[in-house]
């Protein structure tokens, strides 16, 4: 564990807590893409298949349970909670994400570290996470103004993988046999997808204005 990875995990945890806060405090999920939440639930379920088979550390196990639990809870909330579900922007959240799921799974069948069930699903989760934010970014552009908590949620979600890139650089420099090309390349693509959001987020923060994404 290094400071970059810890910062990344904490930032990721904060993004989840901000989203939970928004939904429970405002009893609303307006501006949140259910499709991105469902993609993230798939990412965690596919990535943490080793949850019960490989014990790495208490921290690792606890965080995996937190991420799986929170993503499923948010999907459940947005689909079935009788108050929250009413504020879901159903007509704006129309990204056909099964194309992304199919493409990522196909890529994982071709490009993986080892051809085993667990490794293919792990590579699938890495590729899927890189594009999981797309429905959310499309929804933000369509819904115009973005409320603060939603903007902060997306910001922390994007920042966490940037910390992971620093972690991979650090591990590459300090650990002799460390190579994680699948994670690194996907992590770079994932962070790059946030580039324009980070730009408009910075502008809104600098001008102390509402976050506006151009349509």
């Amino acid at each position: 564990m290094n400071i970059f990875r810890l910062a990344g995990d904490m930032t990721h945890l904060i993004s989840v807590l901000v989203l939970l806060l928004k939904i429970y405090a405002t009893k609303s999920c307006s501006g949140i893409s259910l499709k991105t939440q469902e993609l993230y639930a798939m990412v965690f379920l596919a990535r943490y298949l080793d949850l019960f088979s490989d014990f790495i550390s208490l921290y690792n196990t606890v965080m995996k349970l937190v991420f799986i639990g929170s993503s499923l809870a948010i999907v459940w909330c947005m689909r079935y909670h009788r108050v929250v579900r009413r504020s879901y922007d159903r007509e704006l959240d129309t990204f056909r994400y099964w194309i992304l799921v199919g493409a990522c799974f196909t890529l994982a069948l071709v490009l993986h570290e080892k051809f085993s069930f667990q490794e293919v699903f792990w590579a699938f989760s890495i590729y899927l996470e890189a594009v999981a934010i797309l429905p959310q970014l499309v929804l933000l552009q369509r819904s115009g103004n973005v409320d603060n908590l939603t903007g902060q949620y997306v910001f922390f979600l994007g920042a966490y993988r940037a910390f992971y890139i620093l972690n991979w650089i650090y591990r590459y420099l300090t650990e002799p046999r460390f190579t994680r090309w699948i994670s690194c390349v996907s992590g770079l693509v994932q962070t790059a997808l946030y580039a324009d959001f980070f730009y408009y987020y910075f502008i809104s923060w600098k001008n102390n204005a509402k976050l506006q994404l151009p349509a």
């Binding site: 990875r5 990721h12 490989d54 790495i56 690792n60 965080m63 995996k64 991420f67 046999r177």
Partner: peptide, 10 residues
């Protein structure tokens, strides 16, 4: 201990 190729990251 797990080799470093293990998935020790989240």
């Amino acid at each position: 201990a797990k080799t470093d190729s293990a998935k020790d990251e989240l």
